[in-house]
């Protein structure tokens, strides 16, 4: 069965490149360019995993994560936080907020796939 990953990320370049990596590994990819749209797509498409950026206009990744985890419709979807910025204790913070994992950009494509495979389908 095809597994879907939702990328919530404001940088088109990151969406396109990440989508290329995921599709080459056999995943179906949905994307949203901000937190509000991401939450709506998470509800309508019920992805198997969410890749979530932190620095976004409008509601940022932390707020998006909070809302995804608060809503019973989306709270079970594993979320991997990925960020290009240094966040003091960002890994601890994201784990405490319910994220499945945290990793930094730029990433190695193979590692992204390993991480997605590790968490996908693991309802939290």
């Amino acid at each position: 069965m095809e597994r879907t990953v939702l990328i919530i990320e404001d940088e088109k370049l990151i969406i396109v490149s990440t989508q290329m990596v995921l599709e080459a590994a056999g995943f179906r990819v949905e994307s949203a360019v901000n937190g509000e749209e991401g939450i709506q797509k998470a509800k309508s498409t019920r992805p198997d995993l969410v890749l979530l950026d932190i620095m976004m206009p409008g509601i940022d990744g932390w707020e998006t994560l909070t809302r995804l985890k608060r809503d019973p419709e989306t709270s079970g979807i594993p979320v991997i936080v990925f960020t290009a910025r240094e966040h003091a204790r960002g890994h601890q913070k994201s784990t405490e907020m319910g994220a499945a994992d945290y990793f930094r950009k730029p990433f190695e494509p193979d590692e992204l796939i390993e991480l997605v495979e590790k968490h996908i389908g693991q309802s939290v």
Partner: peptide
């Protein structure tokens, strides 16, 4: 890092 992520991935 943002543009570098694209270059690295591609």
């Amino acid at each position: 890092r943002t543009p570098l992520t694209g270059i690295k991935t591609f």
